[in-house]
Structures are given as structure tokens and as C-alpha cells.
Computed example of a mutant assay.
Amino acid sequence: MTFRAGTAMLGHLGIEWNLLDANEEQKAIIANWLSHYKQHRSVLHQGNNWRLPSADGRAQTQWALSQDRLQGLAVYSQLAMPKQAQTLPVCLPNLWPDQLYRVEVLEHSPLPGHLMKALPAWWKKDLILNGASLSQVGLQLPIFDPESLVLLAIQAVPLMEKH
């Protein structure tokens, strides 16, 4: 469910499924994704959108950035097992280099315990990085099974919060 919804997030988020056949857990997952879609609709439809393949071709990132480059939404999808031991960092281009941004994990597929014992240090913390870091160095993500993903919200930090 998460992979299906996340894959459609930067499109029209069409359900294309008879919801009468969905159980309560599936309906709750769909409701969560619809809530994210509605909350970020202006970024998704009025911003700029990119499809960013990974260097090894085993993953892709769909990246939507508002026209003012102050908020964005990224869907990282693991399409097949990575060729290396860890996923490659995900770079989010076109952010203001000196602007600070808060990174928040909104949704993710179940994290496989058989692939990794620890999450990246920033995963459950309030991560704030400048646009240059997010664009050029990127984020290290956990290892996902194929057909898994993560939804990330990127939001500029207001000036008074920078101190």
C-alpha cells in the first residue's frame, strides 16, 4: 500500500482501486497518504518536479520543489536491491544554498531488520541542514527492500528559528 501510494504521490494520487475491497488498515494507510497529498498539493502542482535516478539505477527520487524554493517533497523509491552495501546519498537539487531546511520523514515502508541493525543517526531527530548540503552531499537513507520507499518533507527554517 505504501509503495503504491508513494509512487502516485507526485502524480495525481489516483487510488484506482475499489475501496469497498479495502480492509480498515488499508483504508487508514490511504487516508494518511491523502492527507499528505492535500497538505502539499500546492508544491506538487505549482512547483517544479524532477525524477532523479540513483547512480546505480536501483532507486529513484521524485522531487517536487515550490517556486520560491522554500518547501519540497521527496519520494525515494527503492526499485531493486542496491549494488553496494549501503544506499547512495539522496541529493535534492535547486535549494537555496545558504537557507536552512528542516527534513522530516512523513511516511515510510516497513524497515527491514534483516538488512540493517541501525537507522541513520538523523532518522528520528529534528534534522536541519543548509540547502548546499542537501543539494550536494545529500541524505543517507536506511536500506530498504525493493518496492519500498520513504516520503520526506523539506521546509525552510524561518529566520527566528535559526539561532
Score class of each variant (00 low, 15 high):
residue 111 L to R: 10
residue 111 L to M: 08
residue 111 L to T: 10
residue 111 L to H: 06
residue 111 L to N: 03
residue 111 L to W: 07
residue 112 P to I: 05
residue 112 P to W: 03
residue 113 G to F: 08
residue 113 G to M: 13
residue 114 H to R: 13
residue 114 H to A: 13
residue 114 H to Q: 13
residue 114 H to V: 13
residue 114 H to C: 12
residue 115 L to V: 06
residue 115 L to G: 05
residue 115 L to K: 04
residue 115 L to I: 06
residue 115 L to C: 05
residue 116 M to W: 06
residue 116 M to D: 05
residue 116 M to Q: 15
residue 116 M to L: 14
residue 116 M to C: 11
residue 116 M to G: 13
residue 117 K to F: 03
residue 117 K to V: 07
residue 118 A to I: 09
residue 118 A to H: 09
residue 118 A to Y: 10
residue 119 L to A: 08
residue 119 L to R: 05
residue 119 L to H: 05
residue 119 L to I: 07
residue 120 P to Q: 00
residue 120 P to K: 03
residue 120 P to L: 01
residue 120 P to E: 00
residue 121 A to C: 06
residue 121 A to S: 09
residue 121 A to P: 05
residue 121 A to I: 08
residue 122 W to P: 00
residue 122 W to T: 00
residue 122 W to A: 00
residue 122 W to M: 00
residue 123 W to I: 11
residue 124 K to C: 10
residue 124 K to Y: 08
residue 124 K to V: 07
residue 125 K to R: 14
residue 126 D to Y: 09
residue 126 D to C: 13
residue 126 D to A: 12
residue 126 D to T: 15
residue 127 L to N: 04
residue 127 L to S: 14
residue 127 L to H: 02
residue 127 L to T: 08
residue 127 L to G: 04
residue 127 L to A: 08
residue 127 L to V: 12
residue 128 I to T: 14
residue 128 I to D: 08
residue 128 I to K: 14
residue 128 I to Y: 04
residue 128 I to C: 13
residue 128 I to H: 12
residue 129 L to Y: 02
residue 129 L to M: 12
residue 129 L to F: 07
residue 129 L to K: 09
residue 129 L to P: 02
residue 129 L to V: 09
residue 131 G to D: 02
residue 131 G to L: 01
residue 131 G to S: 06
residue 131 G to Y: 00
residue 132 A to E: 13
residue 132 A to M: 11
residue 132 A to T: 09
residue 133 S to E: 15
residue 133 S to F: 13
residue 133 S to Y: 08
residue 133 S to D: 15
residue 133 S to Q: 15
residue 134 L to T: 03
residue 134 L to Y: 03
residue 135 S to M: 08
residue 135 S to D: 06
residue 135 S to K: 11
residue 136 Q to H: 09
residue 136 Q to K: 10
residue 136 Q to G: 05
residue 136 Q to M: 02
residue 137 V to K: 15
residue 137 V to L: 14
residue 137 V to N: 14
residue 137 V to P: 07
residue 137 V to T: 15
residue 137 V to Y: 08
residue 137 V to S: 14
residue 137 V to I: 15
residue 138 G to F: 03
residue 138 G to V: 04
residue 139 L to G: 04
residue 139 L to M: 04
residue 139 L to T: 01
residue 140 Q to W: 02
residue 140 Q to A: 09
residue 140 Q to E: 06
residue 140 Q to L: 07
